[in-house]
Simulated scan of single mutants.
Amino acid sequence: MKSVQRPIAEPEADDAKAPRRSRVSGMDRALQILDHLYQTGEPAGSYAIAKAVGAPLSTIYVIIDELVERDLLSRRGDGLVWLGPRLYHYGLVYARSLDFLGEASHVMHELGRQIGETVQICGRDGDHMVVLAMADGPGHFRVMSEVGTRVPLNWTASGRLLIGHLPDAERVAIFSRSAKASPTEKAKTDAAALSELAGEAFEKRLSIQISETDFLVSCVASPICDESGACVATISIVLPEHKVVANPELYGKAVRDASESIERKLGWRER
């Protein structure tokens, strides 16, 4: 009897389209842990991290132990873990490699000495503003935000500027999903109104907020724009509310001059 060669059956259409299970690597899990701590901005326990990233608790225990051993995480006395010193050293080396941040920091310190107030360089991290560099003022006035602080874009003068160059529809979409009430409840949350303010501030190269994030604290910011005209960062003066109310022109001119100086140094603005 002859054997009959049967054709190999083709997979059903549904089977061909069925997603394959993918194994999450240890590297991916480690990054999920680091990202979670970075995004929340506070120490956490293994159980909370496992729940947040959707991973087995046993897996998270092992990876956290390995990261602690390598100084990428540090374990506190209460058992919670936080970002480790090795990450800080990596960050310092990375910051030194950025021509932008180096040039901006020089101008930031010059402005701080000139104006006698705290000055910050801020950038955008998704739907948040993040403090990239900071020079403390010489007086007793101190601000709560330090380098690495992340706050919603609608809370700050810098946050509005960072998306001011975008089309109105895109700004509205960003504010619609990200705007939150501030601790003082003075920050606007209406997406359309915020978009209009952002566009106007960007056109004027000046944004001022008074007591929207912290009581009696104000911020005067100007955009730092690259050669395409996009706002890549801001430089801002953080000072007591009564000072900017008394003399907004002084601080506005100082911060705009500083942002233009940074742009010229980087070749983003004609001299």
Rank of each mutant, 00 (worst) to 15 (best):
D99W: 09
Q114L: 10
E12V: 10
R269M: 08
A52C: 08
A258N: 00
T118H: 02
A201L: 04
R96A: 11
I49H: 05
P43F: 02
G123F: 00
V232G: 01
A104W: 02
R6I: 13
D78R: 05
L132T: 03
T59S: 13
E263G: 02
D14A: 14
R269S: 04
L87T: 12
R150T: 09
T189S: 05
E10C: 07
R86Q: 15
H36V: 14
E260S: 06
I262Y: 00
A221I: 05
T234N: 09
I237E: 10
R70N: 15
Y90Q: 13
D99A: 09
F100V: 05
K51F: 13
A198W: 03
K243I: 08
R75N: 08
G139D: 11
T189W: 02
R171W: 05
A48Y: 14
V130N: 05
D15W: 11
S228G: 10
R177N: 10
I210W: 03
M144F: 13
L87H: 07
M108Y: 03
D99F: 07
G79V: 01
A254T: 04
E110F: 02
Q114T: 00
S25G: 14
F141K: 10
S261W: 02
R160I: 01
A133W: 01
Y47Q: 09
A201R: 12
E10R: 13
A13Q: 10
L98F: 11
K180D: 03
V244E: 00
A246H: 06
A55H: 08
K17L: 14
L92S: 08
V62H: 15
T59G: 11
T213H: 13
I235V: 15
S182L: 06
V4C: 01
E249A: 09
L216N: 15
R76K: 14
D214G: 05
T149I: 07
A201P: 09
S22L: 11
L132R: 01
M108H: 04
D71E: 13
P248Q: 13
A198G: 04
S261P: 00
K180C: 12
A169T: 02
R271S: 07
G84I: 01
P138H: 02
A258Y: 00
S207D: 10
A44W: 11
S236R: 09
I121V: 10
A157N: 12
D190Y: 06
V217Q: 13
I33N: 01
S25E: 03
R76M: 15
V131G: 04
G126A: 04
G137H: 06
D136V: 05
Y61K: 12
S182C: 02
G252Q: 06
G116D: 01
E12L: 14
H128K: 11
L98D: 15
L31D: 06
I60H: 03
G123R: 00
T149K: 13
A181H: 12
R271H: 10
Y251N: 03
E212G: 11
G267W: 14
F141H: 12
P43M: 04
I8M: 13
R177A: 11
F100T: 01
L194H: 06
E260F: 06
L73N: 04
G84T: 03
A181N: 09
L197V: 07
H89Y: 12
I174Q: 06
P167D: 05
